[in-house]
Design a protein around this nucleic acid. Structure first.
Lengths: 174, 174
DNA sequence: CATTATTTTCAATTATTTCCGAAAATTGAG
DNA sequence: CTCAATTTTCGGAAATAATTGAAAATAATG
């Protein structure tokens, strides 16, 4: 009976890892990275590089690169066990924290560069006096305004505590 | 003097198209699609497939596929000029509308599938009575709760009118 | 210092996605 | 119906991204 429960858990967990990995693709995150995150999010204990390699059947290089990337994002922490030499990794499991970390990263990668582009184009077209030039500049200006807005919103959301977000959402959804 | 202004505009516009296209990659949108969108967003008149092909120096197949995709997203409209046979395309230029369209699409592609996965895993692990099973189920449950929340938020935002969003943002940012 | 465990790098391979170009299908006009 | 304009499809080429596997670098141990 104990074995059966363990099997079912293992199966559910593998399903989660596989699907979460597949979804990572949609999210613009590579499959391995999403799988490692899923694996560690549902691990009882921190895992070493070798354990991750074995669990997901991936190469050392791949495991290493993606573990480091996840640490850089702030979705994993490297921990050391006393008397042990190698590093273990444990995942951030709080969903709200995961969300704010991802939001911050996405803002950095998606919004900030857009702002630069749009600012530059708005600037370059400021003094073009033809009707087409004015229209273009106005379009860039509106885009810039919106991106600035989005940027500030993203910052705010990323800073929010869970409780406050819920409170705000209540107003919004109520 | 007129020529100079036109040149500067053309240059600024090409820069915008190139950069917006490069950014599309980051956004998980293919480069051509983003370029076409940028091209039409800054076009005074609707453009035909052939005009798009020529402006961006891309093949017919590529132009066609991405124009259709943009129409499917709701970022372009196909229009017909009276007495003309071919289709022309014009872009949605209102930035808020662009945003809500993209938000809707992203929700559909990123949030909805995640909800399914997480629901299934939560369901499958509901009755596993081991401590590990309970922990896994609890993790899935929290994830599900969050994704439902995100889903509802995304729906609300996608439905918002510009004015309301601004108003809400004022509270949030104030 | 020499040895060994571990992490990091990287060139080569493999997989995935995007794009081309030409053929096939469709549509409207005469 | 016939013809020409236009759209759509699709197999494979080209470009991009992910992954491997093994060697190099680093760090702890005795």
């Amino acid at each position: 009976m104990k074995l059966k429960a363990d099997d079912r858990l293992e199966q559910a967990r593998e399903e989660f890892i596989a699907q979460w990995g597949a979804m990572g693709t949609q999210w613009g995150i590579n499959r391995t990275m999403a799988q490692i995150h899923a694996l560690l999010m549902t691990a009882a204990e921190p895992m070493s590089t070798d354990e991750v390699m074995e669990a997901l059947e991936i190469s050392r290089g791949n495991a290493h690169a993606n573990l480091k990337e996840l640490v850089a994002w702030g979705l994993l922490r490297a921990v050391v066990r006393k008397g042990e030499r190698r590093e273990y990794f444990e995942a951030e499991k709080d969903v709200w924290r995961i969300f704010t970390v991802v939001a911050r990263e996405r803002k950095r990668r998606e919004i900030d560069p857009a702002l630069e582009v749009v600012r530059k184009c708005a600037e370059e077209s400021r003094e073009i006096a033809t009707p087409e030039g004015r229209a273009f500049h106005e379009q860039m200006r509106q885009l810039e305004e919106f991106v600035v807005f989005a940027s500030r919103m993203a910052d705010r959301v990323a800073m929010m505590k869970h409780g406050f977000a819920i409170q705000m959402a209540a107003k919004l959804l109520g």
